[in-house]
Amino acid sequence: MAENILVVGGGPAGLNAAVMLSELGVNVTLVERDSFIGGNPKKFKYKFLFPDMQPADNVIGELIKKTESGGNIKVYYSSEVSDFKENGKKFDATIKSAGGSETKTFDSVIVATGFEHFDPARDAKYSYQLFDDVIDIKDLERMMGENNFVRPSNGQPPKNVAFILCVGSRDRHIGNQYCSRVCCTISVKQAIELKEHFPDCEVYIFYMDIRTYGFFEDLYWQAMEEHDVQIVKGRIAEITSGPNNTVVCKGEDTLLRGPFEIPFDMVVLASGMEGGPQSPEISSKLGIELDEHGFLKPENITLSPFKSNKAGIFLAGACTGPKAISDSITEGAAAAMNAYTYAVKNR
């Protein structure tokens, strides 16, 4: 008899876990909150992925295709786990969807509920939603995905653009002390894409640190050396409206020691990642631990980053903290392996 494994969340992590389990012959049940699978990359129409600028479809489209064609995966769209109980070493879960409620017994569970983008409107100083030309990286990602790079306020190409790093991350006031890990790399990637699209546009990045860790550093060098992207050291304290339909960034050039107020056609906020409302929800529903940053907590962050504190429930992807797609996919595979082993042992 084949094992039954539940995967919650259909982003890169959850999809890869599902695909790998199905290849092992497991009956996979995939519960996805949205009406589509593919997670945040699909929702915000990522077009090209860092680090190598390959089309997102190569990755996300591929995973979706495998999920939908793999005969062993049953996907529940627009659904949720409405009830969850332990049953010896197994788990009874009720899945609620438009088609009604179904209760099944699972040998093990993988949680891959991912992240939410920080909402920059929560930090008033950036005037997000106040000015049309202040957008954030997920908005720009979506705009680029729709081939629409222009200024939201008037549909014109921007003459100069400012990226502001660490929005909603590394800030005690906002309550997020951690670094969101990907926003630096996304910013340099988008800066390159902007310059490729509008070679005459000047692009500036306001930074405190640029954390394009590992090989992501290549993109950062490329942005400066091949596209003349200029970096300026200082965090922005305020965005106000300027002359001729511009937005003014007020900051300090900490290297030159002095304040500046510079008008831009467009400002892009590098907003970070959050555990979102789904992390505490799933934590209390499944009885697994939440960490102090609002993400799900692995049993041992170094030894077993893909295990929850509860035997038989495994974690994968951005639900345990900010990370890139490759890491999420790796964790999906690791969680699949562990969930399978647990299921076989307790057969």
């Binding site: 405190m208 050291k233 200082g234 965090r235 922005i236 304290a237 305020e238 007020k250 900051g251 300090e252 050039d253 900490t254 304040p259």
Partner: peptide, 9 residues
């Protein structure tokens, strides 16, 4: 950590 937000504001 010398981010400059104080001087900027």
């Amino acid at each position: 950590w010398q981010c400059g937000m104080c001087t900027a504001s």
